[in-house]
């Protein structure tokens, strides 16, 4: 499974709230620690990437936030300016501002233009070989198919023009499983698992992008080893509780309740994991990241998730 980081472009998606940004950042961190020049890009300008790296705000201009690890935030207007300057040999500064605003208006209405500017910038970084790996904290599951299908849609709608030329090489990069892979992040809960199964099917039917891996985030640990649950049940029986209080302390009640909660939560989640494994193509690796019982979710969490991913990838 070591080939995941050998690709050039990893697009990370997932339902809101599953830890998509942390997982994307962790892949990037892992790659950079293994000596690769890595770019992490967030597509939604929410500043989440800056917080998982515990660094200042990120912008369209990439910035090195860890050794060999650069971070940026997508900005379609800036992407357009860069594109116009590069493709049309327009001067980078003068008169592009109002032009870009008008273009932005058309992009609001015209299908796929904005998406192509996003995908285009990422594919451009890959084509130019500025980085060994580009990791994208991408759109949420609901939006990602539309985003990936944009170059194809433009290709069909637009008969001539530079943008049509552009979509061709983008599609070449996106459709090459050695270069580009999608990673779906899920938690072992009902809705994220449903959406992951649906998205895996839609990726195959509606896009050219290869599903590289599914990351199951926040997997709860198994509390008891073999035969131990029976012992717990015996200790926690109502008629045995007085003895337990006497031996361990009067306030042991919440500890028993918490153990029951941990067992039940683990069990319902195990069912969802099983369903996910059964429904997703067996050839797609599933990487498990444990639930982190941490006080905060900054760089420390990113490091821990990165270590868990490394272990799962066999590094």
């Amino acid at each position: 499974m070591g080939d995941l980081l050998d690709r050039k472009l990893l697009l990370v998606t997932g339902k809101g709230g599953v830890g998509k940004t942390t997982v994307a950042a962790s892949f990037a961190l892992l790659a950079s620690q293994r000596g690769m020049r890595t770019l992490a890009c967030e597509v939604d300008a929410k500043g989440a990437l800056a917080s998982v790296f515990e660094t200042g705000p990120t912008s369209f201009a990439e910035r090195e936030v860890q050794p060999r690890l650069w971070a940026m935030t997508m900005d379609t207007e800036a992407s357009l300016k860069e594109y116009l300057a590069l493709q049309l040999h327009l001067p980078a500064a003068a008169r592009i501002g109002p032009l870009a605003r008008m273009f932005d208006f058309v992009a609001t209405a015209a299908p796929g233009v904005r998406e192509v500017l996003t995908i285009g910038k990422l594919a451009y970084e890959v084509r130019q070989g500025h980085y060994d790996l580009v990791v994208v904290d991408g759109a949420a599951t609901g939006h990602v198919v539309g985003q990936l299908a944009a170059p194809q849609a433009i290709n069909e709608l637009v008969q001539v023009g530079i943008i049509r030329e552009q979509t061709r090489w983008m599609l070449d990069i996106l459709s090459d499983p050695e270069k580009t892979g999608m990673v779906i992040v899920a938690t072992p809960d009902e809705m994220p698992v449903n959406e992951t199964i649906e998205l895996a099917a839609r990726l195959r039917s509606d896009t050219v992008v290869d599903l590289a891996a599914v990351v199951v985030n926040r997997v709860l640990p198994e509390l008891f080893g073999r035969g131990e649950e029976a012992i717990f049940e015996r200790l926690a029986r109502p008629d045995a509780l007085p003895a337990l209080r006497k031996a361990a302390g009067d306030d042991v009640g919440p500890i028993v309740d918490a153990a029951r909660l941990a067992v039940t939560l683990r069990r319902t989640r195990a069912d969802h994991i099983e369903r996910l494994r059964a429904e997703v193509d067996p050839a797609v690796p599933m990487l498990y990241v444990p639930y982190l019982f941490l006080r905060s979710h900054g760089l420390r969490a990113t490091h821990q998730v990165s270590e868990a991913l490394a272990a799962e990838l066999g590094y």
Partner: peptide
């Protein structure tokens, strides 16, 4: 004017 010039070249006038 520059908008239409550029938009024509980028998107194609038909689109």
């Amino acid at each position: 004017k520059p908008f239409f010039t550029v938009a024509d070249r980028v998107l194609g006038s038909q689109f």
